[in-house]
């Protein structure tokens, strides 16, 4: 249920990004790479994926039991 709402919201945002920014030219980015359609969506997805993957692989080394320092 919540998942479905989130997916609908995401699709709407992607469509809005393409329509408003690419077709109607309502915004401009600072870098060339931001000209890619729906750059915000790609950035959000890859960025959070990056954080999750780095955190999860780092935790193999740094995660210890709670009494580690005792």
């Amino acid at each position: 249920m919540y998942r479905r709402i989130l997916y609908i919201v995401c699709v709407t945002i992607v469509l809005l990004e393409i329509v408003l920014l690419k077709l109607m030219h309502l915004g401009h980015g600072y870098f060339k790479i931001e000209e890619i359609p729906a750059f915000g969506a790609i950035l959000g997805f890859l960025g959070s994926l990056f954080v999750v993957i780095v955190a999860k692989s780092l935790s193999k080394v740094i995660t210890k039991r709670e009494d580690y320092y005792d």
């Binding site: 998942r3 989130l6 997916y7 919201v9 995401c10 945002i13 992607v14 809005l16 990004e17 408003l20 920014l21 309502l26 915004g27 401009h28 980015g29 729906a38 750059f39 915000g40 969506a41 950035l43 959000g44 997805f45 960025g47 959070s48 994926l49 999750v52 999860k56």
Partner: peptide
């Protein structure tokens, strides 16, 4: 600005998607 608001909303939405994918792992 339209660009800034849409980028932020997109980041929010797709980060939510990533969270749902990794819900068990996180």
């Amino acid at each position: 600005t339209a660009q800034h608001i849409l980028d932020t909303l997109a980041i929010f939405g797709f980060t939510g998607v990533v969270f749902l994918i990794f819900l068990k792992k996180l």
